[in-house]
Design a protein around this nucleic acid. Sequence first.
DNA 1: TATACATATGAACAAGTAAACATATGTAAG
DNA 2: CTTACATATGTTTACTTGTTCATATGTATA
Lengths: 124, 124
Amino acid sequence: MAKEREDREEHMRKEAEAAREDIVEQVSRQQPDDEILYDLAELFKVFGDSTRIKILYSMFENELCVNDIANLLHLSQSSVSHQLRILKTSKLVKFRREGKSVYYSLDDEHVRAIISMGMEHVEE
Amino acid sequence: MAKEREDREEHMRKEAEAAREDIVEQVSRQQPDDEILYDLAELFKVFGDSTRIKILYSMFENELCVNDIANLLHLSQSSVSHQLRILKTSKLVKFRREGKSVYYSLDDEHVRAIISMGMEHVEE
DNA sequence: TATACATATGAACAAGTAAACATATGTAAG
DNA sequence: CTTACATATGTTTACTTGTTCATATGTATA
């Protein structure tokens, strides 16, 4: 009888589907809140611009003032300043004032680590 | 005589300027090629979208097919597929076909590492 | 306080891009 | 080979965002 085989197949199909649903539900529970993932995306978005990456990389070892960066990367002072504001807001860089100049540097080791990880992936 | 003091100040100013220039030149030498930094920015740009980050995170532990992801994240099939194409092109995910479904998963440990690093920074 | 230099900010414009919708391709089974 | 289901892709649109230009703020010095 074909009926029996059909029943068996239907049974297996339903089990597989249930297993899928279990996994999907499990993933759903493990998934962080949307808010956190939104923040995470915002963080990477800041790294996701070649001008900002160049600026960040230029500060990998040394602190630099706005003018240094502008000269080094052949960018306008305005552009550098605008980008530094974004980097500042995202807590990727810190700064200190010395006379008329403002010196910027990477905020912490996380920033260096993230860049390094990305570099490894790119250099493959 | 004020002249002497002025000379001394000018001397110091020039020395400081020269030291700055040295540092800037040193940074310039250390800076990777623009092309590499461009690729690096492109990489982070892919992480820098909340939809793609959600998709990536959903695959943190398990492989998932397009439909699973769409249901899980309440996204249209089209949207998920478009984003997966971007993730595929950037070599952030791999996939295998099984019957009518296509199962996607993170391409390597770098991807996990980059996401984890970002998470640490966000969760501070 | 006036001047010069360094940096920051506001506004407008141009380029890039994610989502939606429609449609095409691929695959299994009758 | 036709139907149904899963995934992929092309196109348009609305929105986001980096740059430029002009201007403002901040700081040291005469």
